[in-house]
Structures are given as structure tokens and as C-alpha cells.
Design a protein around this nucleic acid. Sequence first.
DNA 1: ACCTGAACACCGTTCAAGT
DNA 2: ACCTGAACACCGTTCAAGT
Lengths: 236, 236
Amino acid sequence: MIKPPRPQSRRSEALSKARIVAAAIAVLDEAGEDALTFRVLTARLSTGFGALYHHVGSKDELLRAAAGQVIDEAAAHVAPEAAPDEAVRELALAVFDAIDAHPWAGAQLAREPWQAALLQLFRGIEERLASLGVPGGSRFAAASVLVHYILGVAGQYTAGARAQLAEGNRTAFLAKVTSDWARAQGQADQAAALGIAAQLTEHDDREQFQAGIDIILAGISALSLPPRTPTSRNGN
Amino acid sequence: MIKPPRPQSRRSEALSKARIVAAAIAVLDEAGEDALTFRVLTARLSTGFGALYHHVGSKDELLRAAAGQVIDEAAAHVAPEAAPDEAVRELALAVFDAIDAHPWAGAQLAREPWQAALLQLFRGIEERLASLGVPGGSRFAAASVLVHYILGVAGQYTAGARAQLAEGNRTAFLAKVTSDWARAQGQADQAAALGIAAQLTEHDDREQFQAGIDIILAGISALSLPPRTPTSRNGN
DNA sequence: ACCTGAACACCGTTCAAGT
DNA sequence: ACCTGAACACCGTTCAAGT
């Protein structure tokens, strides 16, 4: 009675949480957040609902796991030998780029920020701030601002991506927003609204994000680092 | 044929967008985001679906209008004679407090940050930064960081409030998060996770938020304001 | 233990019909 | 013009039944 070498099933591999999460990420990347339903997952993995629920518990848990994986990968790619303030910038940018590539993950993180992956980010930032000389008493607050900012941008970036998808393209989207603003403003304020819309049109999201990180790092340094010789401070 | 003085209808007032939005805000405040459905609204206003759709277009539009109203009210309460940096702090805190009172509004703003109400906030901040001496070239970036940060905190604050509601209370919620973290970490890192959880337990959200605003304002000042005599800089 | 898929309890939204 | 509510086209989730 020798066991047959695995009775080649219809599916190539057995179902597992990892395979379900991978399929979910694929659907999310290809077609966005609204497209992820248990029905398309059952079709894609050729199973039933019960099989999925046997491995994942709920749709929320699935979304959490998918976002966690994306962020984990991003945060792992930071060069360990970088100078501490550069490392903070790299960490922040890695998360930004991950969310650029997977906008749905930004929405998820903004919604449930206590995921383990973000704990890693927080700890990574706090560690670098310590190397930078930020004293223990203000380190928590300093790391918090950075993480809050990163998540704030993440959420809004995602929102923009989703809306641009719905509206066709960035230009069309901004045109619609601008006209909505103009309608909501008094006549006198329409010029200001147009000015802001123009700056939104021109600016580069990634550069803007980096400029924000620089401002916050400068603030942390100003408030909680021993003052240095005030030369060569050209931050722009 | 004199018209009767308004044939006292079953409902006290005619249906209108304003009344629908008011009812929506009431439901959201009383029972949270998930509780707002067109079905409970029809019951509360004793009408049918079609009547609601005749005034609001979609649930998204309703949510937008509700959040917009809450933020508009908050931003309007800032004393106009305040010093510019104090005014920025007041604006930020007003939004924070509004979201504390209406957590669902935070989620909505994080999801669709281009609402007209936020344009007002942005302009209010930019104006004050101009008074503060921040040059035009960096003012947009500076105001952006502040707004991104405010919205980031808003989103996460809301997430926390929602989770605490689900979990029973803040302590129970933090206990659950901590145990999730501990499970996800290696043994060696559990201490660090516990330390962060402890700081989360102790800190006051509102104070933390203010500390963040101070850090960002210090960074703006360091990077784009003419240097002052470096005395009496005690920001903590 | 793992999987299947009909069925349940909801949603937001539409629309023919009323006044 | 404004309102009504049955009906439609979806969801996430459960669960008795299979292997």
C-alpha cells in the first residue's frame, strides 16, 4: 500500500492563507478596492466561500494581511548603513512608494493604523531618532508626528488615486475639484481657489512628500536637539 | 378661494437637503458610521427612498455634506485677532476637537480631502503663514504638511475611536493591540512593543496632537523664516 | 480536516406609480 | 414637483452537506 505521490488535484496547489492573500493583492492591484469580493476570489481560486473562510476569518482580516505584507516588504528594503536622518527619509519614502504602487494599502493603513507592520515602521524611526540624539522624553512625540504625517499623506494619496481613476485622469479630476470649489466659494475667493488648484496641478507628489519630511525633521531638530553652530542650514 | 394657511402635514416640515443632512449627522453621532443607512433615514424622516434621492444624489454625497458642515463650523470659530502662529494652532485644534466629537467626519475627510471645507482650512493656514513671514515659495509646502498632518491624525483618531467602540473601551482595545503585536514580533522585540503600547496608554491624544503641530511649526520656521536671535527657544 | 455552494440577512439604488 | 415603496442587483457571511 504505497501512497500515490500526491493525487494531482484540479488546483495546482492546496489552498492556504498565503495563496488567498496573494490572490487578493493581485485583484486589488489590477482592479482596485471595490473589485475585491469573496465571489471573485472563489472564482479566481476555484473554491467556495467556506474554503476561504476556513483560512481567513473575514474580509477585514484579509485586507489587513494584504496591506501588512506590502508595508513589511517596503520597510525591509532600507539600507542599514545609512546615516540616521537619511534612514528616516528612506523609510518614509519606501512606504510612500509602496502606497504609490498599491493605493488600496494606503486606505487600509489609514483606517487601521495599529497593524504590526506599522509598529515596525514606528520602531525603525524611533531608533534612528535616538541615534540622531533626540532625547527619550521627546522621541515618542517626534516619531508620532512622522508616522502620522506619513499615514496622512498615504490616505490622501490613495484618495486622489481612486478619484483620478473614477474621473479618467489627473487633469480631469483637478478640473472637477476646482469647479466644485469655485461653486462653493464667494466670487472674491474663487481666485484663491484657482491658485491653489494650479499649485496642485504643478507640484510633484513625491517631492512634496519629501519636503514635508524635511520640515518635520527640522522641527524635531529645532525643538529637541542641542543647538549647533547655525551655519550651513540650507534646507530647501 | 383663499389658500388654507399651509395644510398641516404629517411631517412637521417639508423635506430638504438640510433636514436630511441634519438627520444623518444625528444618526452618525448616536450610532456611528455603520448605522447610517437609507433605511434608517427613511424611518427617521418618515419618507421613502425616492424622496431622499430627490434631494441628495447618493450616500457619498450625503456623507460629504455632513462632514463638510461639521468642519465648516469648527473652522469658523477661530478668533480673528489671534497672533498668526496662535491662529494656526487654534485652527488645527478646532478641527481636532470637531473630529473628537464626530469621529465619522475624520474618516470622511481622510477619504476625500478635496472637500471645500478643507480648502477653507488650507487657505486659513496659508494666510497665517504669510503673516508669519513664510515666503511664497515655501508656503504651499508648509501649509500642506500641516493639513496632511491634521488629516493623518484625524483618520487615525477616528480609527481608534471606532475600534474602542467595538472593543468596549480604550484599555481593552490597547490590550488587544498589544497582544497582537507581541504575537507578531520575535521574542526579543516584545519588550519594545510593550514599551510603545505603554506610552500609547499614558499619552493624551490632544496634547500629543498639539506637540506635533509645534514640531511642524518649528520646522517651518527653521527652514523658511529669517533666523532670529537664538535665545529663549524653549519649545517643550 | 478541508472544501462546496445554496441560502440568509443585509446593503445602495432604481423606477413605475401615485399626489 | 415631490413623494412612496416594491423590486433589483449586489454584498459578506453562515452552515448543512459532502469528501
